[in-house]
Design a protein around this nucleic acid. Structure first.
Lengths: 341, 341
DNA sequence: GTGAAAGCGCTAACAG
DNA sequence: CTGTTAGCGCTTTCAC
């Protein structure tokens, strides 16, 4: 019986010694590179199993200067949109033999910065992020260190990077046109912070639809709010309580839509009889409520997949792409024609 | 001007040379351990910034034999329950200076095994998992290698590990008692696979409530299904189409509840007039639909927090804990008394 | 306080 | 085909 070193985990050297081969040979066996005589391979594998040896990524990554890791920075992983996106990333990266460090910024710039620094320190191969819009310097640093960066959903003014976007203007335009075609002339807009490009793009689509049909936008009905449940709800209530209330509501994402629906309920209004509602983002509950909500659906999973593919493409190869959003007409909007001719 | 090595990233040695100090000193500066003369520290930091030096976790982790990383294996991160749980884990680990590798098993044993192997290879300090129930040997291996394992939501028969559980029996019992008290005598049970302890526990509570009041369980109304939308929906439909349909439905988690609600809608039934519905798990949509659904709420975020705390506690210190579930009475269940005295 | 030196576990030449 | 030998970037004694 050979002496068993029970101190900590067995290493490649332990396996090599025990199997009576060189350490390089063991490496070849486990990295599946170079040729190893079948007999040798078998012996090494047997010894390894016997010893309970498991290769360590630490040594490997240090030597190879690559970690096969990507960082994913989302806003809030409990939000179904980011969850679907993350599923798309995970599935794709797994297939490529990589793994994902998950970070949730909570839309907070300081938190985002901490995470960027962490990911840099971990020497991830790439980062996929829904950027808050700040921390330009941290992003520059990361890139300078050779980390591939892919932006999702939003752009970062002043920082050029491949991005996975959706047609925010087009989606918002279509949704708004739909409402206008239904006869609505006072449409409330519940949007996110305008420094996020997502927010401004959707608002742009909303406005353009109005311009196209020559209907003025009532600025009193345009509200921008942070993406937290409380503030969003308060804003929605404010909109409903306008002196001349809107006949329809456009919620710029699912959090805002949830707030809008809750506010509508709490004010005792019915959808779509008393007020119509449409929103950006498709989420399971949109189909589940009664009536189901008409939405502009972003292909969250596919966006994650696309981002994952992009983030590993060789330097400079990556190109931004814009995915289409699909309007899902359901039953949350009704025709509204004023009495006066 | 000193010669700039532009080959790859600057290392500690580059900083040391440039600052005219020993490499050990640079290490002390960045690891904040040991004493460094203020003047020296300043100089080192200046040089580091100038060079764009960022410490690498690869070297550090290799030396320290610890990665400050924990693996999180959930079923489906787009499910709000896991999303909330993950938020709890992330927030807590971040505070502790650690980070999280996210894995989604899709409730598939083979996928789970691949992820366990991956995490072992990465030498994570710990793993938090919602185990599929298989891969006992892989779990044993991981533990043998010194990885702290914390199970969430479910237990793993044959593998003892600290777990974060909720009072599944109690929650299901209370929910069922509530329905029985309302007069329901034919309650359909839409449950998950029975090999998951979660599933069997909830079913146990469901049955015990019946026993307590002396009402027999109609086995034809007890359905177990996998957690996919399609199969869950089909099972719900089957339940509704029973020859003598149930007057109330108990859905054992939010996916099942969603399927149940969809099936109810599609069959043209109204909640709670035609059929009552309660479910396990509280999710945003449960409050949003009309009528809002009565649920047994698991404290998902706190569970994540508790798991994160447990997974880093020193060997053997970790104790399992069971968190309470809170019954949220809303308006999805109505009284049902039969005509006959 | 600080520098020198010995590795952590692995890969990648390079001889044989 | 296989053994040997340098390190990868960092921490950690151990002298000075």
């Amino acid at each position: 019986m050979s002496e068993r070193k029970r101190r900590s985990q067995p290493t490649m050297r332990d396996v090599a010694e025990e199997a009576g081969v060189g350490i390089g040979t063991v490496s070849r066996v486990f990295s599946n590179v170079g040729a190893v005589a079948p007999a040798t391979r078998e012996r090494v594998e047997a010894v390894a199993k016997d010893l309970g040896y498991r290769p360590s990524a630490l040594g490997r990554d240090l030597k190879r200067r690559s970690t096969n890791t990507v960082g994913l920075i989302v806003t809030d992983i409990s939000n179904n949109f980011y969850g679907e996106f993350a599923e798309g990333v995970l599935a794709t990266e797994k297939e490529l033999g990589r793994h994902v460090i998950l970070c949730a910024s909570g839309e907070d710039a300081a938190t985002e910065r901490e995470y960027i620094d962490l990911l840099v320190e971990q020497r991830v191969d790439g980062i996929i992020a829904f950027p808050t819009g700040e921390n330009l310097d941290a992003w520059e640093d990361a890139r300078r260190l050779g980390i591939n960066i892919v932006l999702a959903d939003r752009e970062l003014p002043g920082f050029t990077a491949p991005s996975i976007l959706v047609d925010n203007v087009g989606g918002a335009l279509a949704l708004t046109e739909y409402l206008l075609a239904l006869g609505h002339r006072r449409i409330g807009y519940l949007g996110g912070p305008s420094q996020l490009t997502t927010g401004s793009r959707r608002e742009e689509g909303f406005r353009r639809a109005h311009v196209d049909v020559g209907v003025p936008v009532d600025e009193g009905l345009v509200v921008r709010t942070r993406f937290t449940r409380d503030t969003a709800y308060a804003s929605a209530i404010r909109l409903l309580d306008s002196r001349i209330p809107p006949t329809a509501l456009f919620a710029a994402n699912n959090v805002l839509g949830e707030a809008a629906l809750a506010a509508i309920r709490d004010r005792g209004l019915r959808v779509p009889d008393d007020i119509s509602l449409v929103m950006f983002d498709d989420v399971p509950w949109a189909r589940l409520v009664d009536p189901p909500i008409t939405v502009a659906a972003q292909p969250a999973w596919s966006m994650g997949q696309a981002a994952a593919r992009l983030v590993l493409s060789p330097d400079g190869t990556a190109r931004s792409m814009t995915l289409p959003v699909e309007i899902q007409i359901r039953r949350s909007a009704a025709a509204h024609f004023t009495q006066t001719p």
